[in-house]
Simulated scan of single mutants.
Amino acid sequence: MDSVELLLHPVRLRIVQAFLGDRTLTTSGLNAELGDVPPGSLYRHVARLVAADVLEVVAERRIRGTVERTYRLRQAAAQITPDRLATMSTEEHRRAFMAYIAGVMADFDRYLDRDEIDYVRDGVGYRMAGMWLDDTEFTDFLADLYGVLAPRLANEPAPGRTRRILRTIHLPDDAAVESESG
């Protein structure tokens, strides 16, 4: 199965997201987090991700005659490669972006469904900013951003730490380009 088809399925996308932050989970732990996904469906999607080497088994233990496996995300395998990205059709990019946006909306809905929410305490935010950057400045910006993120992405789970999801979108503003040339 193509990596685009594999990773952009809504349930598999949520499974991959659950493992972000170098987490390890059993299928029962995953089921507890994705309680709205029927267990049979969850097990089938986990099996597909294991078969594609996106998830790896890091531990096994016997429980009442069955084997419970603990999985971890193979980060490199859970991404669409730059080569594949370059060959995706416009329709595949639309589907990929729609899956991404649907994931953002679903995450926000789950947050809003909590019993107790506090936007400030929880660090919830969504913003938009426009920057005038040439290609070199934009490349430098991305390098700076990665420099800020890289050490934090390496953080291990620890008491007092909350796993936070950061999503980014970078797009050129066609209206700005048109007004420059016009």
Rank of each mutant, 00 (worst) to 15 (best):
154 A>P: 02
168 T>V: 13
68 E>L: 09
71 Y>A: 02
76 A>D: 06
140 D>K: 08
122 D>P: 02
130 G>Y: 05
111 Y>Q: 06
122 D>R: 09
88 M>W: 01
138 F>M: 08
170 H>A: 02
86 A>R: 10
30 L>F: 08
77 A>R: 04
139 T>S: 08
27 T>A: 15
45 H>M: 10
126 Y>G: 03
100 Y>D: 03
125 G>H: 13
181 S>M: 12
170 H>L: 11
11 V>K: 10
104 V>K: 08
76 A>L: 11
70 T>F: 02
38 P>Q: 15
131 M>D: 08
144 D>S: 14
179 S>V: 09
125 G>T: 08
130 G>W: 01
20 L>H: 06
122 D>G: 05
19 F>R: 00
121 R>G: 03
3 S>K: 12
14 R>A: 05
44 R>T: 09
159 P>N: 12
24 T>G: 05
104 V>Q: 11
150 A>Y: 07
91 E>T: 10
50 V>H: 01
94 R>A: 15
135 D>N: 05
54 V>D: 00
132 W>G: 04
61 R>T: 14
43 Y>S: 13
56 E>A: 15
115 D>L: 12
14 R>Y: 03
64 R>M: 08
151 P>M: 11
68 E>M: 06
144 D>H: 14
124 V>W: 02
82 P>C: 02
130 G>T: 08
93 H>M: 03
177 V>I: 15
18 A>Q: 04
175 A>G: 07
160 G>C: 00
170 H>W: 04
8 L>Y: 04
97 F>V: 09
12 R>A: 04
178 E>S: 15
39 P>N: 15
90 T>A: 13
139 T>N: 09
145 L>Q: 05
36 D>N: 05
138 F>G: 00
155 N>W: 05
175 A>H: 12
84 R>E: 13
139 T>R: 07
19 F>T: 00
1 M>Y: 12
36 D>W: 13
121 R>M: 00
75 Q>H: 13
5 E>G: 07
114 R>S: 07
141 F>C: 00
128 M>G: 15
158 A>W: 05
94 R>C: 05
20 L>I: 09
8 L>Q: 12
36 D>M: 11
169 I>K: 10
106 A>R: 10
76 A>S: 12
122 D>F: 06
125 G>M: 07
78 A>Y: 00
181 S>D: 14
78 A>S: 09
129 A>H: 11
128 M>T: 13
157 P>M: 09
12 R>P: 02
127 R>K: 10
48 R>I: 07
104 V>W: 15
44 R>A: 05
9 H>L: 09
31 N>R: 14
70 T>W: 07
27 T>L: 15
28 S>R: 13
170 H>E: 03
148 V>G: 01
126 Y>K: 04
19 F>H: 00
95 R>W: 08
171 L>S: 09
90 T>P: 10
97 F>I: 15
138 F>Q: 04
166 L>N: 11
53 D>V: 03
111 Y>E: 04
50 V>M: 00
80 I>N: 04
114 R>N: 14
169 I>C: 11
136 T>M: 13
67 V>C: 10
124 V>S: 04
3 S>M: 12
26 T>H: 00
135 D>T: 14
